[in-house]
């Protein structure tokens, strides 16, 4: 759906490129995660893809056509959910929504969307009276107003409570199930792990790793099995190599004879992979 080839970008007053020749594809119907530390180039890349920033070098095509050749119809087919609230605070949620709705040819069922994110009851409240979480949920409704084919989501669950984060993740999955494509940036690795079909890690304007979360976990994980069992009232831990574990006599003996407390494979988490490939530990808001 999106094909990015050798993308380079330098800010007008910048001395060096902030995007250094990245290439990737986002396939139709996939959720693609774009991860990286602050200043790595995530937002810049997203702003180039949604045509806010121009003057880049390289090729970007959308549905087989260079994005520079698109005019209005490009924005008819995409939806963008920003990280920060982007509403007129002295207008009600519905006044905001109705204003944007009229700018598109395709209109989604607003009542359905608002009910889905639990905002229907508060639709006539001023957005200025909304909590941060409510504003973020309204961002999602705003992004989906035009029934887009592709969604760009910047930190979509940031500021949401677990319940609403779950609702949002379900909406993203349903969007994908209905044929939609999603480009998502987030620092919440559990969200990325749960949602994304593929992820790319960007560091200093370069993609340093790109694959499915599963393949990355296999690649960066330790091929081992860690067991904890009870012996003489104490907990004992022991690690076994994963290769040939079915024939490992010591492992099988312990399984049969001891009271096993925990059994873990050496599979790593996306957060560990993030730290490993970017060299930066995750912090809140990063």
């Amino acid at each position: 759906m999106f094909k990015v080839e050798d993308l380079k970008y330098r800010y007008p007053k910048g001395e060096a490129d902030v995007i250094n020749g990245i290439s990737f594809e986002i396939n139709e119907g996939e959720i693609f995660g774009f991860l990286g530390p602050s200043g790595a180039g995530k937002s810049t890349t997203q702003k180039i893809l949604i045509k806010i920033l121009g003057d880049y070098r390289g090729e970007i095509s959308y549905s087989g056509k260079n994005i520079t050749e698109f005019s209005d119809e490009f924005y008819e087919s995409i939806g963008v959910s920003f990280e920060m609230p982007i509403h007129f605070s002295k207008m009600t949620a519905m006044e905001n929504i109705n204003f944007f709705l009229k700018l598109y040819k395709n209109n989604a069922n607003v009542e359905e969307l608002m009910k889905r994110v639990n905002l229907w009851e508060d639709r006539d409240k001023m957005v200025g009276e909304y909590s941060k979480g409510m504003k973020i949920r309204l961002n999602i409704v705003r992004a989906m107003l035009n029934n887009p084919e592709m969604l760009f989501m910047d930190e979509p669950t940031n500021g949401l409570d677990p319940m609403n984060a779950m609702i949002l993740k379900d909406m993203i999955r349903e969007f994908r199930a209905n044929g939609g494509t999603v480009f998502i940036t987030s620092h919440i690795m559990t969200d990325i792990d749960q949602l994304c079909d593929r992820v790319a890690f960007i560091v200093e304007g370069e993609i340093v790793e790109m694959d499915t979360p599963r393949n990355l976990k296999i690649k960066y994980g330790k091929r081992s099995m860690f067991m904890e069992y009870k012996e003489n009232g104490k907990t004992v831990g022991i690690e076994f190599p994963l290769d040939g574990i079915g024939k490992n006599k010591e492992f099988l003996d312990l399984l049969q004879t001891k009271e096993i407390e925990t059994l873990h494979s050496g599979e790593t988490t996306l957060e560990d992979i993030f730290i490993q490939v970017t060299g930066v530990a995750l912090k809140n808001g990063e």
Binding site: F74, Y75, E76, I78, M84, P85, I86, L103
Partner: peptide
């Protein structure tokens, strides 16, 4: 920040 969302409309 409403200008951001105006930029991604048709």
């Amino acid at each position: 920040s409403t200008i951001s969302t105006m930029l991604v409309t048709p």
